[in-house]
Simulated scan of single mutants.
Amino acid sequence: MENNINKSSNQDEIACIQCGAKLTFAPGTDSLKCEFCGALNTIEVDEHERAEAHKEIDFHNFVNQQMDIAPKTEILTIKCDGCGAETTFDQNVISDSCDFCDSPLTSKEGHKSSIIQPKGMLPFKIKDKEGLDLYRSWLRKLWFAPNKLKSYARQTEKLAGIYIPYWTFDSKTNTNYTGERGDDYEETENYTENGESKTRTVTKTNWTSVRGRVFRDFDDVLIPASQSLPIKYVEQLEPWDLTNLVPYDTKYLSGFKSESYQKGLEDGFVAARDKMKDVIRGDVRRDISGDRQTIHSMDTDFDAVTFKHILLPIWISAYRYNQKVYRFMVNGRTGEVQGERPYSWIKITLFVLMIISIIATVYYLVETYGG
């Protein structure tokens, strides 16, 4: 059977209904804005389409039977030699720079491929200027930041708006476990110190073997399908308002870029299971109860596994300092800011010397006048 492929449309083909000029999506609205006449062109979404954006897909059925015939999107992808990010290019774009590390990119280096079409997406809500203000405010609060970094922030005129791919997973789980429960108790013991007999209270633990079962239902466990951004900071951009997902539509991409997934569906589920197991481990400890817990084994069944492929909006800026790339991210929905940051060792050294000087001065004053 022939694959159902949706070719990504050229953004120039999205034309204003009033003047025919190019349209770009206006963050915080449900409309495309004309760059020439300023007219807003509403993106129509009916309730059936909106419901489809939230519809879960059976994971095992999809992997075993639907993977080859599922709707696909044909994209032109350029892999950055600098950081490995895989960014999608519009067909009319010849060259650009990588938004993840600022390395140059050209369409000659790209390749066409078809990927699983996203089910839904969250459009940008935070405007470019808002994101830039939040980014600068975050930088101002950083201690020991290099002056060049703050200067760079002042000179930066805009951030790059990118839709990042994610997988979400649901699952019903039940886990059989074995372990030990530790109950603390106190005893009084005698001891000798400097020839004198004394007593003290010590805490001891009585361990009991246990086994049991815990249940947990998971909903929308988020797994970034991008490997271009530091996972620690990407996860700290959460939470996302996934209840406001809209159907995937290239109109929302107009004026923005998107990254194709580098972590496939099955690898995504492996990562999701690990996240679920971390939560289940806490459930097991609570079920064991007592003062202390030791887990010997956990055997988890993952049932009714479903997934969605979605795109989430992030404002990004990349900055090079001492031959290393630092990336800053702003959640395009909530304005949460996270990122890597360099330190000025000159500032840190001066600060340490100042503290030492203050301590030395106080010590001198106490020794000189304290008596």
Rank of each mutant, 00 (worst) to 15 (best):
S344R: 10
V330H: 08
L311E: 01
D303V: 05
H296N: 14
D291C: 09
Y321W: 13
V284D: 06
F351V: 06
D287N: 15
N331W: 09
H309R: 13
V330M: 06
S317D: 14
R286H: 08
I295P: 04
A304C: 02
Q293T: 09
V337W: 06
I348C: 05
Q338R: 15
V352T: 13
R333F: 01
H309I: 01
I295T: 07
T349R: 10
I348M: 12
V305D: 04
Q323H: 12
R292S: 13
T349Q: 06
V284A: 07
R333D: 01
R320I: 05
L312H: 02
R292L: 13
F328T: 13
Y321P: 06
A318Q: 01
M354L: 15
E336D: 06
P313Q: 05
I314C: 07
I295Q: 02
S317C: 03
R341K: 15
Q323T: 11
R292H: 15
A304E: 15
F328K: 06
I346A: 10
V337A: 08
R286A: 09
L312Q: 03
M354A: 15
M354G: 14
D299F: 11
T294W: 07
R327T: 15
K308E: 02
M298H: 04
P342A: 10
A318H: 05
F307H: 11
S297W: 00
V284H: 06
P342H: 08
Q338H: 01
R320M: 06
L312T: 04
T294E: 09
V305F: 02
I310Y: 03
D287W: 02
K324P: 02
I310T: 04
V305A: 03
R292V: 03
S344M: 07
L353A: 15
F302V: 09
K308A: 05
I288P: 00
W345Y: 15
Y319D: 00
S344C: 09
I295V: 13
K308Y: 05
L312G: 03
I346S: 13
Q338T: 15
P342V: 11
D301I: 12
R285T: 00
V325R: 11
V330A: 07
G290L: 04
R292F: 14
Q338L: 04
M298F: 08
D291S: 13
S344V: 07
R285S: 02
I310G: 00
V279E: 11
T294G: 00
Y326G: 11
R292W: 11
S317G: 06
A318P: 06
Y319L: 13
T306F: 04
Y326N: 08
D301V: 13
V279G: 00
T300Q: 08
I280K: 02
R341G: 12
T300K: 10
G282Y: 09
V279F: 05
I316T: 14
R286F: 08
H296D: 11
E336N: 14
